[in-house]
Design a binder for these strands. Structure first.
Lengths: 210, 210
DNA sequence: GTCTATAGGGTGATAGAC
DNA sequence: GTCTATCACCCTATAGAC
């Protein structure tokens, strides 16, 4: 029972351990030994399941990039009006990020080293970032034309939304210190931001002269 | 002339090379050999000037944290009205970051590994992040009381400002791909954002019923 | 101050017993 | 499938000649 029930569960176990170590330390600082210990497993077994550190990393990175981008597509391509789309985007992004605190920094860090990986992986997720922008632009420009919102460049607005959702978690150590929060209070603050950020954005694009 | 004029210039040369390599690759992935080559110098010389990789790193990291935080203090403690303070903050942050593209990701990445370093270094810069927040809160709360702006939590507003300025550079590879920009156009876009972001923020906090 | 050579420790990967 | 032992390489750091 101790040594048998595992089999193909082990692979999953190892992947989770690797995910944790890679995302927290980055590729270069991650040690095969860290991953092995995290999974309560022998170092040699890692190579038995996934030939090399590189192979393991690629597997995880690809999956994480998908997580990072997918979901947005569904929201943007729904038939909701812009205001609700924005609310949904903010809620989706912040929720995802609170559940995966190390994800954004990890993805962005590794992406600097080899930016070309982005396109491949994102496309493999069935929803390219470009498509999302194109659709979002249509929504924004329609809203501008119908005077539902103020004039704003769709690309800038999209950047603003992402920034407001993602950056705070990346800067967690700074913010914890500056705002004098412990981990629990920090998470509460992030949840609180779902409403705050939506309001902040919607107030900004609301037509000035009603 | 080739081997002599250096002397104490070499130290500076090496620090610049180290800064470049460390900020681009992070501590773990940075190689002493990379730094040596970047500085056109022998590997052993690095240890002659700065005993170890760690010592070198600390020196650079401390300086970069200072860059990251200083300047904000002067702006916040000036006598300008909130609107101008915000404009100045945005301009200062984006300008600093465009000039040091790898700085934010580097600082934030290394900060995750050892968050406690933040307080020491930030305080050593003579302007603790906490002080900045305290002062900023006074400005915001005064403006709220005098109906100059809408009600908003000062901490949230500060986070928003930082997010909108810093995140885009961290996500540069993603944005270049999504917005289909080359390096030159990306820098132009960031410069363009100085005005865009200021407007975005000020519109959001502007009193609704004038 | 600057170089070459090398020590010393760590890390990814493999061989081979069970 | 799982383990121990070990190889081969890489990287930091130092010793010592010049």
């Amino acid at each position: 029972m101790a040594k048998e029930k595992r089999d193909n569960q082990t692979e999953k176990l190892v992947l989770e351990a690797a995910m944790k170590v890679f995302t927290q330390k980055g590729y270069a600082a991650a040690r095969m030994d860290d991953i092995a210990k995290e999974a309560n497993i022998n170092r040699a077994l890692l190579h038995y399941y996934f030939r090399s550190k590189d192979k393991m990393f690629d597997l995880i990175f690809e999956q994480k990039v998908k997580e990072f981008f997918s979901g947005l597509g569904q929201i943007v391509f729904s038939d909701r009006k812009l205001e609700d789309v924005i609310r949904e985007m903010v809620k989706h992004e912040i929720t995802l990020i609170v559940a995966n605190p190390y994800l954004p920094l990890f993805v962005l860090q590794e992406l600097q080293q080899s930016p070309e990986r982005l396109l491949n992986h994102a496309k493999a997720s069935g929803m390219s970032p470009n498509l999302i922008l194109k659709r979002f632009s249509v929504l924004v420009n329609d809203a501008i034309r119908s005077k539902t919102i103020n004039k704003i460049e769709p690309g800038q607005l999209l950047i603003n939304i992402m920034s407001l959702c993602i950056y705070p978690m990346i800067a967690k150590p700074v913010l914890k210190s500056v705002l004098e929060l412990d981990d629990k209070k920090f998470d509460n603050m992030m949840a609180h931001r779902i409403g705050q950020v939506s309001e902040f954005i919607l107030l900004s694009i609301k037509p000035t002269s009603k």
